[in-house]
Design a protein around this nucleic acid. Sequence first.
DNA 1: CGCTCTATTGATCGCGCGATCAATAGATGA
DNA 2: TCATCTATTGATCGCGCGATCAATAGAGCG
Lengths: 211, 211
Amino acid sequence: MSTSVSRPRTRKSPQQRSAEIHDAALAIGREQGLSALTLRAVAARAGVASGLVAHYAESMDDLVVRTFRELVASELDEVKTEVTTRATPAARLAQMITTVLDSEHNDITLVWVDAWSLGRGSAALADAIEEQMAAWQSFIAAIIRDGRDAGVFTTDDAQAVGWQILAMIDGIAAHALTRATDAAPFAARLAAACETLVGAAPGAIVEQLDA
Amino acid sequence: MSTSVSRPRTRKSPQQRSAEIHDAALAIGREQGLSALTLRAVAARAGVASGLVAHYAESMDDLVVRTFRELVASELDEVKTEVTTRATPAARLAQMITTVLDSEHNDITLVWVDAWSLGRGSAALADAIEEQMAAWQSFIAAIIRDGRDAGVFTTDDAQAVGWQILAMIDGIAAHALTRATDAAPFAARLAAACETLVGAAPGAIVEQLDA
DNA sequence: CGCTCTATTGATCGCGCGATCAATAGATGA
DNA sequence: TCATCTATTGATCGCGCGATCAATAGAGCG
């Protein structure tokens, strides 16, 4: 039979091959969610035999966890970069809201939604989820504390308000993903709700939204 | 070999057997989420051969969708019953918040989270999700319209605010499930945020929380 | 009592999954 | 040029999934 010639082998350094497989996993995770991260799918994406993926990954569970961590942590980094361009705590919250509710963030929301579901079957993934959620929470809480120190926010529980705002953001993002709608129209109302939660003057955050 | 005697057959009316299988699916869905709803798991729970489940269900996809619809719709019914005991729109919103953030609602949140993830691979499930989300949204929006008609709420977009409040609730519930924490402490702040969104006087909803 | 009808069983198929491993090919250095 | 080393392949295993179906057992009727 003339079917399926053997794939020509390309020998690369372990570091480079490992990086390629890593990148393939990132691409699949971002485009199709964590539930699409299978041994064979990653192998196909990297243009490599399935055994090679297994060789470079400790286990698929481990690869999923690493991919989740990297996707989510790098998104938080991007948001931080975006946010620190703004001068005041109110403007930083406004910037965070618009950035995170942008339609380009649907893909990362898909990662989160899959993680919430898969995390119930993987202790390692559950740990990574808690860790990354905590990173987001402390980022938000730090902005709130800045605002309180500057006298523009009055809440006395930045920690709890941070968790609450994060939960609201995640809910809105999950809805936008599920209903295939744009989350941006929710930004103004979310900003108003945040003003209430952090104890800012009405309009303090809303007015910073499109600046 | 003396292993595994054949299961004694119990012959029941198609309606009764169908109901038993249906109930087994509901129980598994509620306890372990939609992702645990497999042909064999439902059969084991119902104490029945796997083939019988396949015989009474059009397909597993269909059984998952039906189970999702029933679990979620009956929860909405319960919440409605609970909420209509309260006289004013503000009290009804407060009641909805406390009911839905109760720790007993973690199981239904698990159903939702699995649905969001699985819905991306099943058009039928995606339809059911949209439909049930819309049912929740119109329930909330109706309360908001009542409040506006009564002159206690001032928002001019009950539809959008309904979606927004629902999204916030779902986010908080998903966080509580994922982080294995109690959602109840979020109730007061969520109520305050809702006052802002619907345009109620400060405290109007918060003060109704534990009444 | 015996016959018919049908609810029920469990073996079976094909598939995709993660994981394993003997065989192999290509780069590298002597 | 040739031997060595190791990165890479793809077949293979065991598992659980949804689905299918011939065989069967039990209830109910004449």
